[in-house]
Design a binder for these strands. Structure first.
Lengths: 224, 224
DNA sequence: AGGGGTATGTTGGAAAAACAACAAAAGTGA
DNA sequence: TCACTTTTGTTGTTTTTCCAACATACCCCT
């Protein structure tokens, strides 16, 4: 069964054996959707009936300003969840536009059934709830980190703090970042050329080394 | 029982009757702590054993830069949850400093027991997990909103978008905001006097009316 | 009512970031 | 390999924001 393999990778179904996952599938009315790079997954105002789990690729919550510039994006990576909020708030209408940044595979779960275990047919449902809590908490931490990066009051501090956070996450002073310059600028709320300029400066100051999207940090935590 | 009243107010224990709440208390080893305005609730590096629920007041995750200025704060309001992440990540050491902005009452829950229901003694535990998911999802949305506000690329846009979001939340064009000028500046990642100046300008442009922390918005969504 | 404290508004100069336009480099595909 | 496109870096100018200092308004207390 194709979906079983797909789903077993995810934290949402962690610690649940294959037979139980099969039962859960039926219970949660699992569907799998595929999108091509650039496809719109949810439009503003769409009816949202499901909880979406990213199985493959990156989906991006995009805000486009009145000049046509992308000035915000929030990325959902493999394992991340979105859409549940619309069930919870009884609105069921999307307030965002979600696009596929790469080719994307999504798992669609029935939100009502996800939250309301049917105790007889799938006794491991409680494990799903626990996994869901952990996942949401992780997404929460990611957002808190982003807020802390965005409230730094200079582009220099934003960049250094961002790189420092990545180094903590990767447990190494040297790493690749998942953004090109334009994307990093948008992520940090900066303008692309200003970002480039500041990265040049940081290299001259020997605080970082950088080649394309590969970075090495040379400073210590106390220095920023 | 004092704690029962306290807890029944919260979404975390919604749809659970009083007897079951009592059982949950024992199961989750509920403690209640009180803090005075200004008290430190968690210091950087503290051992975090519990999940904290705000029963009363506002607690603030504070970042103080090397000049001693507060340049970020994330507020936890009544019903909000924090601390669970430290259990989940197996770290159990706080990476933030949490302070009481007002007098605060916290409910402390054993994180392990919260996530791992003991099915015999408290059968309503699943309801708690569902409530916890809803709560975390709401905190998530709040953070996403904050990120979207922070990535606006001028102070004018930040202020207008923030006020617009508050008006959506309060379902009214006229409302009070929970911040003074210094706090709003910090929340939006701006400098206090620049914020004051911009609020003056917005009034001159007749986009808003404002007296102290009472605001009225005069613009329409499409205009920002 | 008066005084001390805090919050808010205003200002002008300094600094930083945005913006626009172009140059250089890297990637892509025939 | 060569043209074409995309990404990245650089520069000079304009605009915005910060910063520091001061003025004004508001609040609280006795």
């Amino acid at each position: 069964m194709e979906e079983t393999k797909l789903i077993k990778k995810f934290d949402l179904f962690k610690k649940i054996n294959e037979n139980d996952v099969r039962a859960l599938f039926r219970c949660l009315q699992v569907k799998v959707n595929n999108y091509k790079k650039g496809d719109i997954i949810l439009k503003y105002g769409d009816r949202v009936e499901y909880t979406y789990v990213i199985a493959r690729g990156v989906a991006r919550d995009t805000i486009i300003d009145k000049n046509g510039n992308i000035n915000t994006h929030i990325d959902y990576m493999e394992g991340d969840i979105f859409g549940l909020e619309y069930y919870i708030n009884n609105r069921k209408l999307s307030l965002s536009e979600i696009r596929a940044v790469s080719d994307v595979t999504l798992i669609l779960l029935d939100s009502f059934r996800l939250l309301n275990p049917c105790e007889n047919s799938c006794f491991r449902h409680t494990q799903v709830l626990q996994n869901l809590i952990i996942q949401l908490n992780c997404q929460n931490l990611t957002l808190i980190r982003r807020v802390k990066e965005l409230t730094k009051n200079s582009s220099k501090e934003k960049i250094l703090y961002y790189l420092y956070n990545v180094s903590l996450e990767k447990k190494s002073d040297e790493f690749d970042i998942p953004f090109n310059r334009q994307e990093l600028a948008s992520y940090l709320g900066l303008e692309r050329s200003a970002l480039s300029k500041e990265i040049s400066n940081l290299q001259k100051e020997q605080l970082i080394e950088c080649h394309k999207n590969h970075f090495k940090i040379l400073f210590k935590k106390g220095e920023i």
